[in-house]
Simulated scan of single mutants.
Amino acid sequence: MSEVASLERPRPAVAAPWTTQRVRWVRHWTEHLFSFAIDRPEDFRFRSGEFVMIGLPATEGGKPTLRAYSIASPSWAEELEFFSIRVEDGPLTSRLVHIQPGDEVLLGRKPTGTLVLDALKPGRRLFLIGTGTGLAPWLSVARDPETYARFERVVTTHTVRQVADLAYRDFFTRDLFEDPLIGEEARGQLTYYPTVTRDAFERPGRITDRIADGRFFADLGLGPGFDPDVDRVMLCGSTAMIRETAALLESHGLVEGSNAEPGDYVLERAFVG
């Protein structure tokens, strides 16, 4: 083959960093909160609690817009579930909120993240502390049998502004306990702890305030403060909550962990400014 011919040989096509998947279902909790599920490719593997890039096909010749989304379904599920908030004028969510079953969504090929059990040292109690759509990874972790095998007690918190924003409340108070895979374990080991900041509610206020003043521990029948010998914590939600709670955890002697070096608590730095 001549040198000219070899130079003209077409380069192999580079695979896109995402695949196109079909929307299975959509549920709108409020005007701004919604969940949806898409097909799961046969070769898509992830650990419960990880996140992946999600997007929509480009319009009018532009480039696709993708954002990081925690996977709300557990690692064994046949579909991929996501929990989202609509951001006014948001380049992705202002379009994503209108998807319907059968529509196409872009799915990144490489899930990753630190909100996984592997990033925590062994312990007895696991606290999943979330605000808003930061509940999403806890939906995954709370449905994983390994969670109940590794921890004697699992506490899932969810702080929102209004009672209507407590999406998945029925799931954590009823449906999860009927799950054929982990229902029995969840009934005996999981506690759901919602708080609301702007509406009247049985547990008012921010989760950070309830931790700081001890109401959180009293409500759960625990001793004062976190115990680094037995307690492990995951954080997901607003940047302010994560930073404040991380400082509280550090004050109790807990050390942040990672995939490379497991610790007492973890947060998702990809979501923290």
Score class of each variant (00 low, 15 high):
residue 174 R to A: 15
residue 145 P to N: 06
residue 15 A to P: 12
residue 264 D to N: 08
residue 118 D to K: 13
residue 202 E to D: 10
residue 67 R to K: 13
residue 59 T to L: 12
residue 269 R to W: 05
residue 265 Y to S: 02
residue 219 D to P: 03
residue 146 E to N: 11
residue 13 A to T: 15
residue 189 Q to S: 15
residue 88 E to N: 11
residue 152 E to T: 09
residue 267 L to D: 11
residue 165 D to M: 07
residue 208 T to Q: 10
residue 155 V to D: 12
residue 123 G to Q: 06
residue 226 F to G: 10
residue 249 L to G: 06
residue 185 E to N: 07
residue 65 T to N: 07
residue 191 T to R: 15
residue 176 L to M: 14
residue 174 R to L: 13
residue 196 V to P: 01
residue 167 A to T: 11
residue 137 P to H: 09
residue 220 L to C: 09
residue 201 F to A: 00
residue 220 L to Q: 08
residue 62 G to V: 00
residue 80 L to H: 14
residue 264 D to A: 08
residue 249 L to R: 10
residue 104 E to I: 00
residue 19 T to W: 14
residue 86 R to W: 11
residue 94 S to D: 12
residue 121 K to W: 04
residue 133 T to K: 10
residue 89 D to Y: 11
residue 176 L to Q: 14
residue 52 V to Y: 08
residue 16 A to L: 14
residue 73 S to R: 13
residue 11 R to E: 13
residue 219 D to A: 12
residue 17 P to H: 12
residue 105 V to M: 11
residue 57 P to V: 02
residue 220 L to R: 13
residue 64 P to V: 04
residue 134 G to C: 12
residue 53 M to Q: 15
residue 22 R to N: 00
residue 109 R to F: 00
residue 50 E to I: 05
residue 206 R to I: 00
residue 205 G to A: 02
residue 51 F to G: 10
residue 184 E to C: 04
residue 180 P to A: 13
residue 241 M to L: 06
residue 55 G to W: 05
residue 129 I to W: 01
residue 43 D to H: 12
residue 112 T to P: 03
residue 2 S to V: 03
residue 10 P to V: 06
residue 70 S to I: 11
residue 38 I to E: 05
residue 246 A to Q: 02
residue 215 R to G: 03
residue 131 T to S: 11
residue 246 A to Y: 03
residue 4 V to C: 06
residue 153 R to N: 07
residue 261 E to I: 01
residue 122 P to T: 01
residue 265 Y to M: 02
residue 203 R to S: 03
residue 114 T to M: 05
residue 66 L to E: 07
residue 3 E to P: 07
residue 222 L to W: 12
residue 219 D to Y: 02
residue 218 A to M: 04
residue 131 T to P: 14
residue 105 V to F: 01
residue 230 V to P: 06
residue 159 T to K: 00
residue 55 G to F: 04
residue 140 S to F: 12
residue 73 S to Q: 15
residue 165 D to L: 03
residue 178 E to V: 10
residue 163 V to R: 12
residue 211 I to Q: 05
residue 240 A to G: 05
residue 26 V to F: 01
residue 263 G to V: 00
residue 243 R to H: 05
residue 47 R to F: 04
residue 145 P to I: 04
residue 69 Y to M: 10
residue 54 I to V: 15
residue 106 L to S: 07
residue 123 G to F: 01
residue 68 A to S: 13
residue 206 R to V: 00
residue 244 E to G: 11
residue 103 D to K: 02
residue 118 D to C: 00
residue 253 G to L: 09
residue 46 F to P: 04
residue 22 R to F: 00
residue 161 R to K: 08
residue 132 G to C: 12
residue 221 G to L: 08
residue 255 V to A: 05
residue 68 A to N: 14
residue 231 D to H: 08
residue 100 Q to K: 11
residue 87 V to C: 06
residue 84 S to T: 09
residue 4 V to K: 13
residue 5 A to E: 11
residue 155 V to Q: 09
residue 120 L to R: 09
residue 248 L to E: 14
residue 232 R to D: 04
residue 155 V to W: 01
residue 19 T to H: 11
residue 183 G to M: 06
residue 21 Q to M: 11
residue 93 T to L: 13
residue 218 A to G: 14
residue 126 L to E: 05
residue 249 L to P: 01
residue 205 G to Q: 04
